[in-house]
Design a protein around this nucleic acid. Structure first.
Length: 227
DNA sequence: AGCCAGGCTACCG
DNA sequence: CGGTAGCATGGC
C-alpha cells in the first residue's frame, strides 16, 4: 500500500495526537515543554510572535530542548520583551545567552538581523521574500515564522519531511526545498491548521524513526524502504 | 568515542 | 553556477 500525504497526516494524527506547536514559554510547564495542543490561535500577542520567530532561528539544526534553554536564557536577559530589547544586548551577551543553541556567534548575528527587521516591520505580516533577505533566515525558517508566528498557510519542509516523503515514495530524498513544498501542498488542502500539525507530526515521527541510520528502519507506520 | 540535532552562509572549483 | 566546509553545544 502506498499512502498519499493526506492519509499519512491522518495516520500520524491518530497515532500521536495534536503536538501543540509552536512551543511558547508562556505555555510552558517548566520542563522544556511549552505546548498548547489543539490550540491553533497561538501565538496571538505580538511578543509571542517575536518569541516564536526567535525560536525558529535558535532551533536551526539542533534539538528543541537546547533551543528552549537558549530561549529561556534570552527571556531572563529581557531580550524577548521586544525586538528593541533584544537589540540593546551586546553581541557578547547575546552569544553567551544562546550558547546552548550551538553556532552561538552565527545565531547571535542572525537574531540581531531578525530583530532589526522586526522593528522595521512594525507589526505587519512579513513578506516571504523579505524574510529570505535576512541573513540567517533560509526557506525553512521563513516558512516556520510565517506558519507558526503569523498563522500563514506556508508548508514547512525540513530534513525529516524529505526522508519520510522519500520513504513514502513521493520524491527522491535529495529533492530541493521548493520541489518538496510544491508537491506536498498540491496534495493537501490549503489549511494553516493542517500545515501546522502536519509538520509538527513529521518532526515527531521523524525524530523517532528517521534520525539514526539507516533512515526509516523499523518505521511501524510506513514500513517503507530506508533511503 | 561517535553520531546526530526542527539549517544557513560563505566560499570553493 | 552546484556542492560543501564551517559554525563550535549537548544528549544519547
Amino acid at each position: 500500500m502506498k499512502l498519499d500525504p493526506l492519509q499519512l497526516y491522518q495516520l500520524l494524527l491518530e497515532h500521536y495526537g495534536p503536538q501543540g506547536w509552536w512551543p511558547l514559554l508562556s505555555c510552558s510547564s517548566g520542563d522544556g515543554g511549552g505546548y498548547h495542543p489543539g490550540n491553533y490561535q497561538l501565538p496571538a500577542a505580538a511578543g509571542e510572535r517575536f518569541e516564536a520567530a526567535v525560536g525558529a532561528i535558535l532551533a536551526q539544526n539542533i534539538s528543541w530542548l537546547q533551543a528552549w534553554e537558549a530561549l529561556h536564557n534570552l527571556e531572563r536577559s529581557g531580550a524577548l520583551v521586544s525586538a528593541q530589547a533584544l537589540c540593546s544586548l551586546s553581541q557578547e551577551q547575546l552569544a553567551e545567552a544562546i550558547r546552548p543553541a550551538r553556532f552561538l556567534n552565527s545565531k547571535a548575528r542572525y537574531l540581531r538581523n531578525l530583530a532589526e527587521f522586526w522593528i522595521q516591520l512594525a507589526g505587519a505580516v512579513p513578506e516571504r521574500e523579505a524574510l529570505l533577505q535576512i541573513t540567517g533566515v533560509g526557506p525553512e525558517t521563513a516558512d516556520s515564522i510565517l506558519l507558526y508566528a503569523f498563522q500563514q498557510p506556508e508548508f514547512v519542509v525540513d530534513a525529516y519531511t524529505r526522508r519520510i516523503g522519500a520513504a513514502a515514495g513521493w520524491f527522491p530524498v535529495e529533492s530541493g526545498y521548493q520541489a518538496v513544498k510544491q508537491q506536498l501542498t498540491a496534495a493537501l488542502p490549503v489549511q494553516t491548521e493542517l500545515y501546522n500539525e502536519f509538520h509538527a507530526l513529521l518532526v515527531r515521527h521523524g525524530s523517532l524513526w528517521y534520525s539514526s541510520r539507516p533512515h526509516g528502519a523499523g518505521d511501524p507506520l510506513l514500513t517503507g524502504r530506508p533511503d
